[in-house]
Write a protein that binds this DNA or RNA. Structure first.
Lengths: 170, 170
DNA sequence: CTCCCCATGTAACTGGTTACATGATTCA
DNA sequence: TGAATCATGTAACCAGTTACATGGGGAG
């Protein structure tokens, strides 16, 4: 019956691959660990958990926590191997910048300032996570890789901002 | 009555700021000009046009093409000045990379290969647009700025890919 | 005893896509 | 005359968020 692929399903199964936990914990885990590149809301997580359980991909242990079954682990591997579905680009900053003439010098300046603040905040957050990771005992390999991706992105943004300011002379 | 801000509304009004055109043209314009950082579908554009017309922000000229009214121009400026609404991050590549242990070496390699191909294709596309722009007479200033943003992003992705391959030794 | 956190869930809404239906115009 | 493109629209669907409702358990 070729179930539709679901990114939420992948995130939930992935979270549970770290061990049994409640739905509430799943969400907290996603928020704190995947938070800088992924989000899920309660409204998504609970229905997904019900569905996964009905499908036999997860089950509840004696404490009521959800845990992966063997089919669930297979399903996780299967989903990981599917190509990520491309997100249609929707960049609000560029949309505004593109109409820079209508936006005016003040608007352009503010846009860049806010974006810069965001990118710097992002770098600070990621630096914080790095520190935390160092003092933990989990396999940090893949965490570090995703953090680095965020850092590359943020630095690219900062470079572009500097270049754009120079080009505009605002 | 504090209308809800709409990004689609902004894109449509912005497109019409280049001159009167049909809804079909609006979409083609968005596709070809904003395409590398923005998307809109017919299902969004036509209802938006009706609403904008009902609100008096646009009107139709003798050829039936839509054009901005004065209030429409004001509204565009107003929307441009609103801060871009932050998109919740949902990065399918990082989601998969994060579970790299489950994904396996083959999966990781394929993920990076595909992403690299995409980033290179993106750079090629942007280079193509640059060439086209050079031979056009429109104000290219802000187009170039958005293109550069795309290039910075794509290069950051490539850097990260190289770094990640080295770190993984896959 | 009260407040906060853990925990589960659902209903309403929103923003958006896809697929379909329809028809005019242009051009080979 | 038939295909491609221009043009307008809508219905069905989908993913996801927000807000709300509910209640247990522990800490101060």
């Amino acid at each position: 019956m070729t179930r539709r692929t679901s990114q939420t399903e992948l995130a939930v199964l992935g979270a549970l691959s770290f061990g049994p936990m409640s739905g509430y914990r799943v969400r907290a885990e996603i928020l704190s660990t995947l938070g800088h590149f992924w989000t899920e809301s309660f409204g998504q997580i609970y229905p997904t958990l019900s569905r996964l359980k009905a499908d036999g991909l997860i089950e509840t242990d004696e404490d009521g926590r959800f845990m992966l079954t063997d089919p669930g682990t297979s399903r996780l591997r299967e989903l990981l191997a599917t190509p990520p579905e491309p997100v249609p680009p929707r960049n609000g900053v560029l949309l505004r910048m593109f109409f820079g003439r209508e936006l005016g010098a003040d608007g352009r300046r503010e846009l860049l300032d806010q974006l810069e603040a965001q990118a710097r905040a992002q770098l600070a957050t990621l630096a914080g996570i790095r520190v935390q990771l160092d003092s933990s005992d989990v396999d940090e390999r893949y965490s570090l890789i995703t953090i680095s991706a965020g850092e590359h992105g943020a630095r690219a943004t900062l470079d572009w901002i500097a270049e754009t300011r120079a080009a505009l002379g605002d």
